[in-house]
Design a protein around this nucleic acid. Structure first.
Lengths: 209, 209
DNA sequence: GTCTATACATGGATAGAC
DNA sequence: GTCTATCCATGTATAGAC
């Protein structure tokens, strides 16, 4: 039998997955953990603090699970493949939905906001590392703000996840379209030197900020 | 004095903006509308149904507000400019946050899901129309799934909005990076015919599904 | 650490007066 | 259509026994 405190964290994650933030009460979470309701307050002080801990724990576990996989990526196309696999697995297990629920709740809860930001940041750091590596060889590498792009990718991922929750077919279609767009970037890497130079010149003039 | 039913819808939107979905109870909404709590059930039957109506109404009003602006867009860069203005205004007024709240709630509420999907679809239709127009002249126009891309843009927008709610600086940085990436696509339009042909050939081989 | 019991607030929803 | 009053379920949080 696992520690009760850990079981409560697990229960909180499960409830967030299955019932959403609105259903995440001390009673419901305790029931999901097979524990007594009063223990939520004994171990964590409040429901909010338990949710914060669940966010930290859950995200760390998820990120750790994909760290090796990320490390093996050496091209943009591979990154997309891993991203899609991650999407499928995490969607099936409902883990991204947890972060999405907390992110939505954090909009109006100042106590939750920093914790969720930290959680998202764990993903962003991973993505940023990979992006820096796979874009290093691109002709436009020095014109890309990798840190910004990593943030865009992570948050767009969450948005897509939420969208797919209400329209599965639409979500799949959106992902397919994005994949095409990403191929575009990689293709540029394989263009001739003339086209690359033209692209760079143009980009520096219009895209630099 | 406006109709009470309308005031309740307004109140619901305000509460979703300021308190989030967890705070959207019949009592709180009625108070925000300056109305009696029982009237929520008299006019709408349940809180859920009021929220659904608020989603429909609110989104329709927002989309209508930008229809003219969208119609005037004739290039990808202009679309981005409008997108950024829309982002700034709607963010300041908290309107996208409303859709985000409902989207998060819809993940675990089958009654809310179709309504929110419809609401998001209003945005998607607008974006799709504009995208179809401004990508028509691109050399890779027939290789882009505009409908899918519109869905990706709309949901990514929501994700960015949510992210900015917990990390304002990060959100801005993500938007800047995306803007650079979009310039990339437009720049390809201005490449010479040789590069364009090479791009098309490559894309058709790798990106077509 | 864990349980029962309980106080007390808030929520959904309805009945009935006006 | 609108209000008061009310029922009952659920929620947070604490006290105190074990």
């Amino acid at each position: 039998m696992v520690d009760t405190k850990d079981r409560l964290v697990e229960g909180a994650l499960r409830v967030l997955r299955e019932e959403g933030l609105t259903g995440a009460s001390a009673r419901v979470i305790a029931a999901a953990a097979g524990a007594n309701q009063a223990l939520v307050f004994y171990h964590f002080g409040s429901v909010d603090k338990l949710l914060a801990e669940a966010c930290r724990c859950g995200t760390e576990a998820r990120v750790a699970r994909y760290r090796e996989r990320f490390a093996a990526v050496s091209s943009l196309r591979e990154l997309l493949a891993v991203g899609r696999e991650l999407h499928a697995v995490e969607r099936a297990e409902g883990n991204v939905a947890v972060l999405a629920q907390l992110l939505a709740g954090a909009q109006t809860d100042p106590r939750l906001a920093p914790v969720v930001a930290d959680g998202l940041n764990l993903w962003i750091v991973e993505i940023e590392t990979v992006l820096r590596r796979v874009t290093a060889t691109l002709p436009i590498a020095d014109l890309i703000d990798v840190a910004g792009l990593a943030r865009a990718v992570a948050s767009a991922f969450v948005g897509l996840e939420l969208y797919e929750g209400v329209d599965a077919a639409g979500g799949t279609r959106a992902l397919d379209a994005l994949e095409q767009l990403a191929v575009l970037v990689e293709v540029i890497d394989e263009l001739g030197p003339v086209a690359r130079r033209a692209l760079r010149a143009k980009l520096r003039r219009t895209g630099a900020r």
